[in-house]
């Protein structure tokens, strides 16, 4: 799961900067995909694995800052390394506050870029791990019957089997039976494990 290949996206309108940055990162042994505009980046489907984005701030039309905002609105949480001709302090602050990994001024040192790329990928790898775990959990959760989901919600809320049975107007035996099933389907090793999973999925008795 974690050994899925990472990829670095580059968005820059300048051909030689784009090509040379691609070559630099590729020669460091990473996968690279380049785009010459923010729109093109948004249009293309992106692979699911860990990734980061090397983004030119100033591009005609749709700027790097615009793209960062757009990605945030779309709920795409990809680490961004900004590169710019000359960064004003307010612009840098805004970009960093919005979660940029690094803000490099051209001409930047290649090591600075590679370091930033590595740390961005590192960050996204753990985020990716979490993302895929949550996704796995969600897949397991999808396999539960509606009744089992009800039971899970109540158990996660801290109710005893007896209380759950009373709540759902059934017997304690039935609840025990459901719980065993739920534990098995979700791959939980203990009750505590199950409660944590439920929390992560945001399952509550209201839901």
């Amino acid at each position: 799961m974690t050994n899925v290949e990472a990829i670095v996206f580059i968005v820059d309108d300048d051909l030689s900067v784009r090509r040379s940055t691609e070559r630099l990162i590729r020669s460091a042994g990473l996968n690279v995909q380049t785009f010459l505009s923010a729109q093109e980046f948004l249009k293309n489907p992106r692979p699911k694995g860990p990734a980061c984005l090397v983004l030119d701030v100033r591009m005609p039309g749709f700027s790097g800052i615009d793209l960062q905002r757009e990605l945030m609105q779309l709920g795409i949480n990809i680490p961004i390394i900004f590169i710019t001709g000359h960064g004003s302090i307010p612009m840098t602050v805004r970009a960093m506050k919005a979660g940029a990994v690094e803000f490099l001024t051209k001409p930047f040192r290649s090591h600075a870029l590679l370091d930033a790329v590595h740390s961005a990928l590192e960050r996204d790898r753990s985020a990716y791990k979490e993302r895929s775990e949550t996704e796995e959990l969600r897949e397991h959760f999808e396999q539960l019957t509606p009744r089992e989901r009800q039971v899970l919600a109540l158990v996660a809320a801290g109710l005893l089997n007896k209380q759950v049975a009373a709540e759902l107007a059934t017997t304690e035996r039935t609840i025990k039976f459901h719980r065993a099933h739920i534990m098995q389907k979700m791959g939980a090793e203990s009750l505590a494990d199950l409660v944590r999973m439920a929390e992560r999925l945001g399952v509550s008795s209201q839901g």
């Binding site: 900067v17 040379s20 940055t21 070559r23 020669s27 051209k106 001409p107 290649s110 090591h111």
Partner: peptide
Amino acid sequence: PLTAVLNNANA
């Protein structure tokens, strides 16, 4: 171009 030169040289 300077950025591109540095990138390419390091590559």
